[in-house]
């Protein structure tokens, strides 16, 4: 069966006719909407490479049926930077070498953005490690990832305080 859904993806409204209700958000993005920045690492919710924000919350896009998302707002790695200006989390990953091969990186970054928004980890290294444990990195750039999330959290907190002042 086919099904129509409306989504906002990276700020753009999209009306999508799903050719197949079996399609996951991950395969919708990668195979149908030319947004392959979101990666498939396990397709089972066990690695986090496919992490995107749905309505502001980080989720595994591989376990999300696209059909369930009518009316949802989706943010992917492609929608994070503002033009040439990297998101603070992207900038921090770059500076702390929080990746090697780069394959898990979009998921790590989206997960970090989601974690920071959740607000429970702060810049506490232990809580960040725990909060980022849904994202495997086989190159094992974990130290850089943790440092990057700490650093980005601090920068974003400082920026928010500045904006508020």
């Amino acid at each position: 069966m086919s099904l129509s859904i409306s989504l906002s993806i990276n700020g753009a409204a999209r009306d999508i006719v799903l050719d197949d209700v079996r399609v996951t958000l991950l395969d919708l993005l990668r195979e149908r909407l030319a947004l392959p920045g979101t990666k498939k690492g396990c397709d089972r919710g066990q690695c986090g490479a496919c992490t995107v924000l749905v309505n502001g919350q980080r989720v595994n896009s591989c376990l999300t049926l696209a059909a369930t998302l009518d009316g949802a707002t989706v943010t992917t790695i492609e929608g994070l930077a503002q033009g040439d200006r990297l998101h603070p989390v992207q900038q921090a990953f770059l500076e702390h070498d929080g990746f090697q091969c780069g394959y898990c990186t979009p998921g790590q970054i989206m997960s970090a953005v989601g974690l920071i928004a959740e607000g429970h980890a702060g810049d506490d290294a232990d809580r960040i490690r725990e909060g980022m444990s849904g994202n495997l990195c086989r190159c094992s750039a974990y130290r850089g990832i943790t440092e990057a999330v700490q650093d980005a959290t601090r920068r974003m907190t400082a920026q928010a305080a500045e904006d508020a002042a």
Binding site: I77, F99, G102
Partner: peptide
């Protein structure tokens, strides 16, 4: 790699 622009095979 941090913007998702790096193109891996299956992309």
């Amino acid at each position: 790699k941090v913007t998702g622009a790096a193109t891996f095979t299956a992309d």
